[in-house]
Amino acid sequence: MPENSTLPIESGPAPAEAIKPQSPGQTADAPAFDVSNFSLWYGTRQALHDVTIQISKNRVTAIIGPSGCGKSTFLRALNRMHEVMPGTRMQGSLKLFGEDLYRPGLDAAEVRRRVGMVFQKSNPFPTMSIRENVLVGLKLNGIRDRALLQERLEGSLRMSALWDEVKDHLNRPGVSLSGGQQQRLCIARALAVEPDVLLMDEPCSALDPLATARIEELIQQLRLRYTVVIVTHNMQQAARCSDRTAFFYLGRLIEYADTRVLFTSPANPQTEAYVSGRFG
């Protein structure tokens, strides 16, 4: 591949810059994902129609839309998780930092190490301790270096704001934690392999308001180092913690704009109907 098409990956922007909310209309964002004319079928049923979108690096992008509109499908296409199901087929192009993720010969596992994922229902591995849960991705990908493992363990648990709560009992089973802690453990597990992007599919839908608040806070922190794409049913959540928002409807991307713009003055009448709760 041509060297100039790849973007160097920074270890993270300076904190001061990142914490400051993005001003609307700012266009200097570097694209992480560059998706064009992307369509996807489950068997004969088309779930995504010609989606074209650029997802910015080091930003939080929210995906909203009514149930069944293809949010999860789109998210899972971003790390090729849909390939797990037999009979799926895609068309179009999907690039991460300029590189085609569907290029023949590129291993899906390789893609998924770069693009981490957190699921709706927290799913720490039931047979593993907190420590093992965080490190399983590294260990099973062949990393043995003790010091590195220890560093990643602490680093990702700190990053997911769980370190202080669990540092004294890392050997307890992961499933012994509370629901919110389990979800943060899953985030730590995803972060431990140092992905560039973190995908989250309704990460708070099974959590109480307090635990939700903690995760949202955490998402703000994550933006410092990662590109985050979050699917949510909760429009307040999208408004609170995302920089840009994409509205999907019936498998199509209807509108994509800065969050503030999309929620205050949507261009499309369908978007307006949805964000104002007058939908369906």
Binding site: N79, M81, V84, A108, A109, E110, V111, R112, R113, R114, G116, M117, F119, K121, N123, F125, P126, V136, G137, L140, N141, C186, R189, A190, V193
Partner: peptide, 15 residues
């Protein structure tokens, strides 16, 4: 549950 397999796949772990 399928979700454990998915979690593993999402970490890029070999099948």
């Amino acid at each position: 549950p399928q979700s454990y397999r998915e979690a593993g796949l999402a970490l890029g772990i070999a099948r």
